[in-house]
């Protein structure tokens, strides 16, 4: 079997029923996708298979022989972040970061397929992705704002509904 991962065509030797997640992580050393539950429940392992978001833990590798797989590593590099990656930095949408690889991939697909900045639509599109840290607020803000890219990565955005009162002001 062969799959193309982030542009590199690679041979796969794992048994055909091995999950794509385990092939990526354990055979091919592509460790961006995370094993959050290995049962489809959290979304930390989501990758693009021929452009469509897939839970790699639910995908038998033999079912995608010949496919193009894009993981979070394939979306952008540290010195060349994609608009969604930039937005996640600028809006502080990642805390512990463990859900982020799947969240960024899903958000990228959502926007690339014409998704709007409507909060409800973003919630519906990404609702299968669990984040235990952020409360989702800043993830939604990041996705809503991401399309244009070109964010200032030396600072972060002020929260949408925040008031700061200093001791002096009180």
């Amino acid at each position: 079997m062969n799959i193309t991962v982030n542009g590199d065509e690679l041979e796969v030797r794992s048994p055909g029923l091995t999950s794509l997640l385990r092939v990526l992580r354990d055979e091919l050393d592509v460790v961006g996708p995370k094993a959050g539950c290995e049962a489809g429940g959290c979304g930390a392992c989501t990758v693009l298979v021929d452009g469509a978001p897939r839970r790699s833990c639910l995908t038998a590798v033999a079912a995608i022989d010949g496919a193009e797989v894009t993981t979070v590593e394939g979306l952008g590099a540290a010195d060349d972040l994609s608009p969604v990656q930039q937005a996640f930095v600028h809006y502080y949408a990642a805390q512990c970061g463990f859900c982020t690889p799947g969240m960024v991939v899903a958000a990228t697909h959502y926007l690339d397929s014409g998704g709007s900045d409507d909060r409800k639509e973003i919630q519906e599109a990404l609702r299968g992705h669990v984040c235990r840290c952020t409360g989702y607020v800043k993830i939604i803000e990041a996705v809503a704002a991401a399309r244009g890219g070109n964010f200032d990565l030396t600072t972060t955005a002020e929260g949408g509904y925040t008031t700061v009162m200093t001791g002096d002001a009180k």
Binding site: G16, L17, G40, C57, T59
Partner: peptide, 26 residues
């Protein structure tokens, strides 16, 4: 039978099901 995989693949991953023969219908 592996259809979409959403049910069977985790069962195989976690060793709950150990198939002798698998049919991938993709």
């Amino acid at each position: 039978i592996i259809g979409g995989g959403t049910i069977m693949v985790p069962l195989v991953t976690h060793g709950v099901v150990q198939p002798n023969k698998a049919l991938i219908l993709a």
